[in-house]
């Protein structure tokens, strides 16, 4: 490769890197972030987006460049160069992707740990006796690591029952059964989920979280909402004809509003929050 081409290649790559870092920070490719792991998710998304765009544009560029530069011009006869192999090149394009993959893997592991994915799953921590130790708890994502020490004692416990084609939220403490999920902003929520019929999935795009709701096997999902608002809850596992209509809303509200809602709907006489 002549030096001039090399300089162009470096300049184009640099411009590309800057452009996609700008794009990943300024284009809204994702919905609002409304839970404590949404910003962490977006960090991972941006890194993957930058790496992915560079790779994609780079490879596409190489293909288009080759097609134009090495096309057979009219009247040209004969073959291309008989280059069969190049060991240093093969090593290079084995090693570089391996390093990139390793980096992405380690980075996403870090992200996963910050989201609490490697935590042992807990639900209903101050009601341990109510759960038999035999009961299997599956999947989901644990509580946020940094939040763990301080607020672990007061997660809001909700039990989600999914059925064709609705979500029901049960607040065991206030004996509330609601079709909408109400949660106060800034407080961790621990949700134990089980399905009555087929597999459903609980998905809130603004929380960047999804967990299947399975018949016969409770699953756990822990999250901390960070922004007030109403966000859609979407069933993400094909569950029958009305799958597309199986939606609900999560209402993230200020603690006072949440308390008011809780008091108003609570059926039990003694309510302690």
């Amino acid at each position: 490769m002549p030096p001039k081409t090399g300089v162009y290649a470096i300049l184009i790559s640099l411009a590309l890197i800057i452009a996609c870092i700008w794009a990943s920070n300024n284009l809204s490719l994702l919905p609002a972030d409304a839970s404590s792991n949404a910003p962490i998710y977006d960090e991972l998304f941006n890194v993957l987006f930058v790496i992915g765009t560079i790779l994609f544009v780079g490879m596409t560029g190489l293909v288009i460049y080759s097609l134009i530069q090495f096309r057979r011009k009219p009247g040209e006869e004969g073959d291309g160069l008989a280059i069969k192999d190049n060991l240093p090149l093969e090593i290079l394009w084995t090693a570089v992707p391996a390093v990139v993959i390793l980096f992405v893997g380690l980075y996403s592991y870090d992200i996963y740990e910050r989201m609490g994915g490697m935590q042992t799953l807990n639900h209903d921590v101050h009601n341990q006796h109510s759960m038999s130790s035999e009961e299997r708890l599956w999947g989901g994502i644990g509580t946020l690591k940094e939040d763990n020490a301080e607020i672990k004692e007061f997660p809001i416990n909700v039990e989600l029952t999914a059925m064709q084609f609705a979500f029901l939220f049960n607040y065991p403490k206030g004996e509330i059964i609601s079709g909408e999920l109400h949660v106060p902003v800034g407080q961790p929520v621990s949700m134990k989920m089980e399905s009555k019929d087929v597999i459903h999935a609980f998905w809130v795009p603004e929380f960047r979280l999804k967990q299947d709701v399975i018949p016969g096997q409770p699953t756990i999902l822990n999250f901390t909402p960070t922004k007030t608002g109403r966000y859609p809850i979407i069933c993400a596992e094909l569950c029958g004809p009305y799958h597309g209509g199986m939606r609900s809303t999560v209402v993230v509200e200020e603690p006072e509003e949440y308390d008011a809602w809780f008091q108003k709907n609570s059926k039990s006489t003694e309510v302690e929050l």
């Binding site: 490879m59 080759s66 090495f70 096309r71 394009w93």
Partner: peptide
Amino acid sequence: GIKFFNWVATLWGGRI
């Protein structure tokens, strides 16, 4: 990835 780089290298310098 190795396969894709090898295909691009096959195109590179050819009479396409």
